[in-house]
Simulated scan of single mutants.
Amino acid sequence: MSAVPSRRAILSLYSSTLRTAKSFSSYNFKNYFVRRTRDVFRSIQAEQDPSRVQSMYQEAVQDLTVMRRSAIVNQLYGGWKLAVEDPAKPVLERSDN
């Protein structure tokens, strides 16, 4: 049985996965993968069983390799920008007063 990953290894994987998630050119994919990354690593953080932490870590490593390939393809075929992403359009702030 392999050793439980260290806190530093998990944090390094988290930052790599988050960086890759933010590299998607598509707004919807980017937001989905950032949200999914945070959810996955919160569940790893909450897990107490060392063998389960190890298996979740290994799954996250495999997901990172798939996400990296997907991000490259998404950057090649990004498509049009959404209105939400348009930097030239002024952002309207919500007033709750």
Rank of each mutant, 00 (worst) to 15 (best):
M1A: 14
M1N: 06
S2P: 13
V4R: 00
V4E: 03
V4P: 00
V4H: 01
P5E: 01
P5M: 11
P5V: 12
R8M: 14
R8F: 00
A9V: 02
A9C: 04
A9M: 05
L11I: 08
L11R: 08
L11H: 13
L11M: 04
L13I: 01
L13C: 04
Y14F: 15
S15I: 09
S16C: 06
T17F: 00
T17N: 01
L18V: 06
L18S: 14
R19W: 07
R19I: 03
R19L: 03
T20V: 00
A21C: 05
A21F: 04
K22R: 12
K22W: 01
S23I: 02
S23T: 12
S25D: 00
S26M: 02
S26K: 12
S26W: 08
N28H: 08
F29N: 05
F29C: 12
K30M: 14
K30D: 06
K30H: 13
Y32H: 15
Y32G: 07
Y32W: 13
Y32N: 09
F33V: 07
V34A: 07
R35S: 13
R35W: 09
R36Q: 09
R36T: 10
T37D: 09
R38Y: 06
R38W: 04
R38C: 04
R38I: 11
D39R: 03
V40K: 00
V40S: 00
V40F: 01
V40A: 01
V40H: 00
R42T: 10
R42L: 13
S43V: 06
S43R: 15
S43C: 06
I44M: 08
I44S: 07
Q45L: 08
A46D: 10
A46Y: 10
E47I: 03
E47L: 01
Q48H: 06
D49T: 01
S51T: 12
V53T: 12
V53K: 02
V53C: 00
V53W: 02
Q54E: 07
S55K: 12
S55L: 09
M56F: 02
A60F: 08
A60G: 03
V61G: 01
V61S: 10
Q62H: 13
Q62R: 10
D63R: 14
D63S: 09
L64W: 03
T65G: 03
T65L: 14
V66Q: 10
R69I: 06
R69M: 15
S70T: 13
I72D: 03
V73F: 14
N74A: 08
L76E: 08
L76I: 04
L76Q: 11
L76T: 02
Y77D: 08
Y77I: 08
G78P: 05
G78L: 07
G79A: 11
W80S: 12
W80Q: 11
K81V: 12
K81L: 13
L82V: 04
L82H: 14
V84S: 15
V84H: 04
V84C: 09
E85M: 04
E85L: 06
D86W: 03
P87E: 10
A88T: 14
A88Q: 11
A88W: 09
K89P: 00
K89A: 11
P90K: 11
P90L: 14
V91A: 11
V91M: 11
V91C: 08
L92T: 09
L92Q: 09
E93L: 14
R94E: 15
R94V: 14
R94S: 12
R94P: 05
R94D: 13
S95L: 04
D96N: 13
N97S: 09
N97Q: 13
N97I: 06
N97E: 09
